[in-house]
């Protein structure tokens, strides 16, 4: 059987398939712990990435007709994105491990020939200490790039750096999936 088809960049004009309401995963009426996840995407010059598609996926709460589990948001002129969703709970890891609550995030943009995948965990969650992925990242500054910070009631923020910034800001941990 042939191997999986090759990827190509989403390009600069993907907004033709953009539907801004997709950034609100609660729009079909899902009930639960509603939160906002905001953030930014910057490049190796520290410049805002203003043409990215940021995709959010969460395995918890399980997707159903009221909750798609998936959202997509463009980055704006300041490189910022914003999702409204339900706060995920823990999900099983491999073996007997549990994974701390997290989102999967995929980035697609001009200059990315295939999507980049990362995660956002929640600062202060006690399960972070034993999460298999977080535990596998030795460098604390790198590990911190996977953790969203609280910005007050129900608002979490994560900033994504495609490369080390001009002042030494840490590159986000991207995942080989």
């Amino acid at each position: 059987m042939p191997a999986a088809t090759s990827g190509q960049t989403i390009g600069p004009f993907w907004h033709l398939i953009e539907h801004p309401e997709w950034a609100d995963l609660t729009r079909f009426g899902a009930a639960g712990d509603r939160i906002e996840l905001t953030g930014s995407v910057t490049d190796g010059d520290g410049a805002a990435v203003t043409d990215a598609a940021v995709e959010l996926w969460q395995a918890d709460p399980p997707a159903d007709h009221l909750f798609p589990g998936f959202g997509r948001c463009r980055t704006d002129a300041r490189g910022e994105f914003r999702f409204t969703t339900l706060k995920p709970g823990p999900v099983p890891g491999r073996g007997n491990a549990q994974q701390a609550p997290h989102f999967a995030i995929a980035l697609h943009a001009r200059g990315l020939l295939k999507g980049l995948v990362t995660r956002a965990y929640f600062a202060g969650d006690p399960m972070n200490e034993s999460d298999p992925l977080l535990s596998s990242i030795d460098d604390p500054e790198r590990r911190a790039t996977l953790i969203a910070r609280s910005r007050g009631a129900g608002h979490w923020r994560i900033d994504i750096r495609l490369q080390r910034g001009p002042s030494g800001e840490t590159e986000t941990v991207f995942l080989d999936v």
Binding site: L112, L133, L162, Q163, E171, D176
Partner: peptide, 9 residues
């Protein structure tokens, strides 16, 4: 300016 320079995890 957009490709990761660190190894993927």
């Amino acid at each position: 300016k957009r490709h990761p320079q660190e190894a993927l995890a």
